[in-house]
């Protein structure tokens, strides 16, 4: 399984990394993101949305749980679901919030924050992004990006 490592030192660099990462994405892809509070998950997703020319402001879905944005994939309209499982306590809530319907949408890109809370419900072939805050430099963020088995 292929894993790439990247390091960023500012919010701007994290957004840039998200934008660069998005180049390999296509409709239907799921990106599962893990990382502690303030590690830059939302900033990384801002970068992904920037690449797909989303005009709306990308905000944290912690309370709204799922944000939907409209972007472009080539000439086609692209939906991006920005999902945040931070407030989810039990797996039986996935149905209530519409997570399963969301993940099944083959025409959309699905980005999930706090994805570790939903392990077991994702298909195998997804992107996994793990963000670690540094103990050395408070602005440093380490990204481990794991590619799908068969992209």
């Amino acid at each position: 399984m292929e894993t790439d490592h990247y390091i960023t030192y500012s919010e701007e660099e994290t957004i840039e990394l998200g934008k660069k990462f998005a180049e390999m994405l296509k409709p239907g892809d799921i990106i599962a993101i893990e990382g502690s509070l303030g590690s830059g998950k939302t900033e990384f997703i801002k970068g992904i949305c920037k690449f797909f020319e989303v005009q709306e402001i990308v905000t944290s879905p912690t309370f709204t749980i799922i944000n939907q944005y409209t972007g472009k994939f080539g000439d086609e309209v692209l939906s991006i679901y920005h999902i945040d499982l931070y407030r989810i306590k039990a797996k039986n809530e996935f149905e209530e919030i519409g997570l399963l319907d969301c993940l099944a949408d083959d025409r959309a890109i699905k980005v999930v924050e706090w994805a570790d809370k939903a392990n077991g419900i994702f298909p195998d072939n997804i992107y996994r992004v793990k963000i670690t805050s540094s103990n050395v430099n408070e602005n440093e963020r380490i990204f481990e990006i794991q590619m799908p088995l068969q992209a």
Binding site: T42, E43, I57, T59, S60, T62, F63
Partner: peptide, 8 residues
């Protein structure tokens, strides 16, 4: 807000 809401 351009990122987090105040309540968050």
């Amino acid at each position: 807000t351009i990122d987090d809401a105040a309540g968050e």
